[in-house]
Simulated scan of single mutants.
Amino acid sequence: MKGSLDSEFKLRLKTMLIEECDKEEISADEIADDVLLFSDESGLELDSVDGLQISMCLQMHFKVRLVDPKEFRRVVTTINDLADYLQPE
């Protein structure tokens, strides 16, 4: 199943982001699937250090290496985009 269609997988990703970036003041339910993660609208207040944490977490949990900043920005845009990248079918 494509990642953006898998509600459980997207919830797992949201929870992982919250835990890895120490954003406990927001719940997974408050993060919209299609909002830009590195924007004020997401409520996560992510910065470059959080980006590094996310990159390391993706490598550890999904064996995905996103070392190129351009590729990282393309993949980690929204929860839907990230889910589709990690679970294409």
Rank of each mutant, 00 (worst) to 15 (best):
L5W: 08
T15Q: 14
K70R: 15
F62P: 02
D40W: 12
G43R: 08
E8W: 01
D47W: 07
P69I: 05
E45D: 15
V67R: 15
T77S: 15
F72Q: 01
Q87T: 09
T77N: 14
P88H: 06
D40T: 04
E30Y: 05
R73C: 14
M1E: 15
K70F: 10
L13W: 01
S7G: 09
A83S: 10
I54L: 11
M1T: 11
L13C: 09
L11C: 02
E41M: 11
D50C: 04
N80S: 12
R74H: 13
E8N: 12
K14L: 06
I79E: 03
D29C: 07
I79C: 00
I54E: 05
D50P: 02
L11N: 09
M56T: 07
E45S: 13
I18S: 01
S55I: 04
G43D: 12
M16I: 03
L5T: 09
S48G: 11
L37E: 03
V75S: 07
N80T: 00
F9S: 02
E20L: 05
N80F: 05
L46Q: 11
K2Q: 14
L66M: 06
E24F: 01
G51Y: 01
K70Y: 08
C21R: 09
S55R: 14
T78D: 14
T78C: 05
R74V: 08
L37C: 04
F72Y: 10
F72S: 07
